[in-house]
Design a protein around this nucleic acid. Structure first.
Lengths: 341, 341
DNA sequence: CTGAAAGCGCTTACAG
DNA sequence: CTGAAAGCGCTTACAG
């Protein structure tokens, strides 16, 4: 391989000079700089990443800790990964992707061995086993998802409380008085998926305050189970006029369920989901939805992380917890309830 | 950070001895080995990845070059990524994920800088710009997808020719004489997506040989366009009794289209797709399909790559081109054609 | 403005 | 069975 020594020799200068000429971290005469650059180009020089990391203690790699959980809907996960990966690239960082089911072990390994300058944790749980590892690590971390304890990390998440409130308010305003809410499976909560109850509790509170009957249930995160459950739910509450979905699989299954019941939205049933626009397009979902903004959250997390890694932010700058306000994308699936018959 | 020097000092031995005790690459007395291990454990020692890479010229990282193309269906892509990532982890490798739209540049950068021991290329095109870069690189590469020129790389792909033949044969045997085939968009072909015409041409040949009328068309890779196109297609060929799909978006859209037309498979129309079982579950697709085996292909690619990287295979071992035989997963969506009316 | 040297943390021949 | 030393390819104080 061609090293900086080869470049220096070709340019007739010392290795240090070649290094400075290339990095610009010290003044170099125009003539020498040009000679060095030319030599580097001619030889096809590329700095060895390991050597540079050893010398600078910087890898320009960000660790991305994803997890493909059997009770999460994988296509939704993909959006976050893309958001993080694209932003990192634009900022000049590569992504080391871990999908190890043993998140804490994977995180410990890549931070201990200094493979990364910082990490982004996806799908963060209320009590996330990866957090103690992250706090003990010398690298910074940014989370997508709100844990119970945010000390020492930057946190980004959708405002699920506000999402729940606005879903209810939206339908209440249009005259609905009995609604259904399908959340993620209960074991997602048990695993610490706080966003499930954050949205649900806020929805229940708002419903109570507004005199709305809200039936909140947990649904499967896989087809075809969730389709059957939706049927059962609609059978059980025939008077409900609106359906709220905090469950991607349920949203994906709903068009078929409505077809099978010969219902349409919003004529027979108003529907609001919570998923990304990209997700809506992939699954051709015609329902209005709270934008879950995975690309935006991924971008925010990476940006903040890079700011810390590159010390653009003072070392004692307080850690941030930032919520993205829910945005309702109107796809015309809500209206006044149908006249009672 | 704790270095091997710290471990050596704590164990009262030389750094080299500590290194050997930990790696096992040279005999070390039981007593010393135990002392070193204990010290390493006590101090929480983890070797510095950069330093190790510099010393050994091995990173234990595999580059994964994915591309999220606007005309490909992202959820299908995810399966390959998971297959590669999981297999790599099991083999003791981490994954450096690139989704840079400029694949050749990204590949050149990570190989030139020695960030990876080898690379896996996903979604390989007939004339793939990344291949010249890969061939010029010192690292080995494994491809998922068949390029026109396979020299210098190991290649893994589904046998699309055989897939096309078997789809036709399957329906021919059941008595069908007029069929439809929906492929990926034509620009996928123009971009070099050879699998599109590999399946299509084989299907057309087999159909001709068996006296079957096969109408082959290109379909969009996004909803809702593809849904409209399916409707138009079924309108245009009312006598066709079977529908073949080499287009994930079309498969995802079909259940709704059939509902809207009040058709069911296989009573009114026999259907065979080409996608993974995981994909079928995600989208709740009730159609029999040729298993595209993304996890298996990802696994095969990583295994072969690791074999080369670790020199378990002689340096002059011939490169392989391996096709996975299509497997028809029967979901009961094919039968004899309905009686003509 | 430039160079010689030290050092980052490993591994691995070379000696004993 | 163990140790002292060289070397991997960089960057960056230290000198001039």
């Amino acid at each position: 391989m061609v090293t900086i020594g080869d470049v220096a020799r070709a340019a007739g200068v010392a290795r240090s000079t070649a290094s400075y000429a290339l990095s610009g971290r010290r003044a170099v005469s125009d003539e020498v700089r040009e000679r060095v650059r030319q030599a580097a180009r001619d030889l096809g020089y590329a700095p060895n990443a390991g050597a540079r990391a050893l010398a600078t203690s910087q890898t320009r790699v960000i660790g991305l800790l994803a997890q493909f959980l059997p009770d999460e809907f994988a296509p939704a996960m993909l959006q976050y990964i893309q958001g993080v990966t694209n932003t990192a690239r634009d900022a000049g960082y590569d992504i080391l992707l871990s999908s190890d089911p043993d998140g804490p072990a994977a995180l410990k390994r890549i931070t201990d061995s200094r493979m990364v300058d910082g990490v982004v944790l996806l799908n963060v749980a209320e009590h996330d086993d990866r957090l103690p590892v992250l706090r003990a690590a010398p690298q910074h971390g940014a989370l997508v998802g709100l844990p119970g304890d945010c000390t020492g990390v930057d946190v980004f998440d959708l405002d699920f409380e506000e999402s729940g409130r606005s879903m209810i308010a939206h339908l209440h305003t249009r005259g609905h008085r009995e609604l259904l809410l399908v959340s993620q499976p209960e074991h997602v909560i048990e695993r610490g998926g706080a966003y499930v109850w954050r949205l649900q509790n806020a929805a229940l509170e708002t419903a109570a305050a507004r005199g709305i009957t809200l039936h909140a249930v947990y649904g499967s995160s896989a087809q075809p189970e969730i389709g059957r459950e939706l049927h059962a739910l609609l059978d059980a509450y025939p008077d409900a006029t609106g359906l709220l979905l905090n469950n991607e699989a349920a949203a994906a299954a709903l068009p078929t369920v409505l077809h099978e019941r010969n219902l349409s939205a919003p004529e027979d049933l108003s529907v609001i989901g919570r998923y990304s626009d990209e997700f809506a397009r992939t699954f051709s979902l015609p329902f209005s939805s709270i934008e879950s903004a995975p690309d935006r959250l991924g971008r925010m997390a990476v940006r903040q992380l890079v700011r810390r890694v590159e010390k653009e932010v003072p070392a004692d700058a307080p850690y941030v917890v930032r919520f993205v306000s829910p945005d309702l994308v109107d796809r015309g699936s809500t209206a006044a309830p149908p006249p009672a018959d």
